[in-house]
């Protein structure tokens, strides 16, 4: 089986649960008192997909405003981006839209976008309606899923959806027409060149 490494970044406002989603996905653990991320943390996880193994190189970025300008380093060369908001905080959903815009303007072409409405276990405190978010996701051709890192809802499912949507290197059983990926590393090296 071929091993394929895929860079994935998590974006979103501070406190929405980006690190908790990654922790749940990679280590199947949850820490309610997790520290705010500095810069970005990095983890990997392997997921089988058809005749390939996808090795996710996950860059879990800091949500704090002061790290905002660093985001291009993490979405540069990414095959997928997970943009996370908190269903109990409406302003985090607005923030999500600015992330989508930034990716559309400066992100890699063909990047798979997934929108995750986290903390879906806190139904009583919901501020963002599912339908609203779902429609928005559809309008930008993004994966939409509500998750809970705390109760482990839809976390691995979300990454499975991402895997499905990532084009194969060679023609294979994919629901989307496959095409050759442009060499993203070229882009990243040229923009780093001084």
């Amino acid at each position: 089986m071929a091993l394929r490494e895929l860079k994935v970044c998590l974006l979103g406002d501070t406190g929405v649960g980006k690190s908790s989603i990654v922790c749940r996905f990679v280590q199947d653990s949850f820490d309610p008192d997790i520290n705010p991320t500095i810069g970005a943390s990095f983890m990997t996880k392997m997921v089988p997909r058809n005749n390939e193994i996808h090795k996710y190189l996950i860059w879990d970025t800091a949500g704090q405003e002061r790290f905002r300008s660093l985001a291009p380093m993490y979405y540069r060369g990414s095959a997928a981006a997970v943009i996370v908001y908190d269903i109990t905080k409406e302003e985090t959903f607005h923030m999500l839209k600015t992330w989508v815009k930034e990716l559309q303007h400066h992100g890699p072409q063909n990047i798979v976008v997934a929108i995750a409405g986290n903390k879906c276990d806190l139904v009583d405190m919901r501020e963002v309606q599912t339908e609203l978010a779902k429609n928005y996701a559809e309008s930008i051709d993004a994966i939409f899923i509500e998750t809970s890192a705390k109760t482990s809802i839809n976390i691995s499912e979300m990454f499975e959806e991402i895997s499905k949507k990532i084009p194969c290197v060679e023609p294979c059983t994919n629901d989307r027409p496959s095409f050759k990926l442009r060499p993203l590393q070229l882009e990243s090296s040229s923009s780093r060149c001084c």
Binding site: I38, G39, A40, S41, F42, A62, R66, F67, S69, L70, M73, R192, C194
Partner: peptide
């Protein structure tokens, strides 16, 4: 240094923090 410095000159302190944390 080649990876960090050009980013630092543009993005300053947070970049240094992120790199050292990495």
């Amino acid at each position: 240094a080649k990876l960090v410095a050009p980013e630092y000159f543009e993005k300053l302190e947070p970049c240094l923090e992120a790199a050292c944390k990495d």
